[in-house]
Design a protein around this nucleic acid. Structure first.
Lengths: 194, 194, 194, 194
DNA sequence: TATGAATGAGTCTTCATTCAT
DNA sequence: AATGAATGAAGACTCATTCAT
């Protein structure tokens, strides 16, 4: 029972995620989700009592499933430069992604809710990114691969540029070339010899 | 008549702007605007036939009224460094602005409409910013105030960082200190002696 | 316009009154009223925003239209006994009334709302009744028609008996004979010679 | 099984009684009862198939548990006056009772169902009261404690006054003083020397 | 017996849009 | 030009009742 229930809940979350990707946050209604899940109106309310509740669950799952920024890349053999390049490559993919893009819904949600929530997951994610980059930069500097930059400043700069690229990609549109150029600029400020 | 008509239209646009600032784009209804304008339901439809139409007009006015990025600062006596600092100061103010902030509505609008529109005003604005910065950087380099950087790359970097700060401020929140730090990083990469 | 609007409102109130009589208070939905009025769902909301609001308006009209308890009977020529008998006759009619009976809805409403409201119209009506009876009893005693009873106590007793008859009529049912008997008991305690 | 079953049923009835006291009749849903009983939705339906059915069972138990009006008071030594005073004291307590008051639910139920049911328990209860009072009054008259009133009329009058007080207490509110005054009026019409 | 997931109907409420005046 | 009453569709939410397990 409980297991079946959990499966159903998971199905709803999975389906809802797809809808949030399609329609953002504000446009999604309980009806949309009900129809997409092929369940009854009342049935959905057994599991969630509002779109927001569903959204937050999607967000939670999203985060728990997202690997730590560099976890997958950090192997013993990889150099700091390797890791950085892979990181940028993934970021590029994410920035340019047209489908399967959950970020617009996230933006919309936080526009709606304001910044009151202390445990803002976006902030957490951002800070995690900064910290991971700091570690990486320090490693690269130690190994002589990277310029001896102010790691904190550089890490924050990278994160803000990535955020800028992301939001521009979602609003005014950016070409692959623009992203490449921008990432190259970042790299050239860090890696001693590209 | 036509004049009166134009005045009325202007009133609507002005009032609607305030509402978009308050509530973003998606949350604004014709009803909201009707009520705020003290106009009749039918009356509004004489001038605009949808929220989107009103929004676009607000956007148009907004842009036509926005001074060119550096127009006001560029006086004969000001050095490139002066202009850059003033520019950053204004950007900072805008980024941290809690009231009178139209940007969330703009973001929401472009999330909604996608990127289909070729004449995307956000893009135009962004490009204008890049170009203005390029000119400024060139001027600064010529005068020996700035490092001899790749002006195009530096300008784009600045604009993306500013966009990143802006969206972060609207979603996860940024402190004044964070903005200051980030702007200082930008400045220190450009201005030879701070 | 405003006049037409007022007419419509009046129509709604009048129609709603009929429904409250038919179904009581708790069973009446906005839908019931909408359908009975032959207006649109949204249309009703232009005038009232809840069943309670409509009910209170019905109640208000009801009260404003109800003549003062004895106003119509009190003519110069009528004796106190005449007035008392007419009063009882009307009360009997009201108590036994099967159709056009708004009282059940009123009871239900006050069950629902509790007694918190200071300006409880039921209470006002009750007190008005007591006071009117006091005046009448005094008049009857002065004229020698009535026994020299404690007027306040007698008036209250009458009102409570009437309330008792009313609620019994609505719940367990009372026959005309029972009402007649009870009213006769009241009369025989007051009028010197029947 | 049957015993366990009966216990369960009893538990449901007991719990439901509490809910009817809290919320009246019309506001109580199967869901309310299910939740209050910590029973499953389907489980409740094994015992009762509607709120009404449960209510009627509560009502039945209520009546079977209610002692005959004077049963407890009628001892050999007590005078008719004693019994009457105790009866009024209990009625007063019941009339003023704010909690643990089942009467509103009963009223609501009979409003809803109309008077169709022949075996209306309210009526039975009322008639029982009248009859018990008649016996008591006769006893009092025989013993010389009470005035030689028309016992049937006096008994009915008392019962209607009590009903009137009860419904007034539930709708417009009555103070303890009002009840005392009214009961005193009743007593003074019956007991020869108070 | 007992569970609780599932359904679907019913009600409330809000809005964009139209239209007679 | 302008009004604002009116409509009807759309979405949220709740519950009685059923049914597979």
């Amino acid at each position: 029972m409980s297991e079946k229930s959990a499966q159903k809940k998971q199905l709803i979350v999975k389906t809802a995620r797809r809808i949030f990707i399609e329609k953002g946050y504000k446009n999604v209604t309980m009806k949309d989700i009900v129809e997409a899940c092929n369940i009854s109106r009342g049935g959905l309310y057994l599991y969630f009592s509002s779109v927001e509740e569903i959204f937050l669950e999607v967000l939670r799952v999203e985060e728990s499933e997202t690997d730590d920024v560099f976890s997958s890349e950090l192997t013993e053999e990889a150099t700091a430069t390797d890791v950085l390049m892979i990181f940028f490559k993934e970021q590029k993919k994410e920035i340019l992604r047209r489908n399967d893009d959950f970020s617009v819904a996230v933006y919309e949600y936080y526009f709606e809710k304001g910044l009151t929530k202390q445990d803002n997951p976006m902030r957490t994610k951002f800070d995690d990114g900064v910290n991971a980059l700091i570690s990486l930069l320090e490693a690269g500097i130690d190994s002589g691969e990277f310029y001896d930059v102010d790691v904190r400043a550089a890490a924050a700069n990278i994160m803000f540029v990535l955020e800028g690229l992301r939001i521009c990609a979602r609003t005014m549109g950016v070409t692959e070339g623009m992203v490449d150029d921008e990432l190259l600029t970042l790299v050239s400020g860090i890696v001693a010899e590209v």
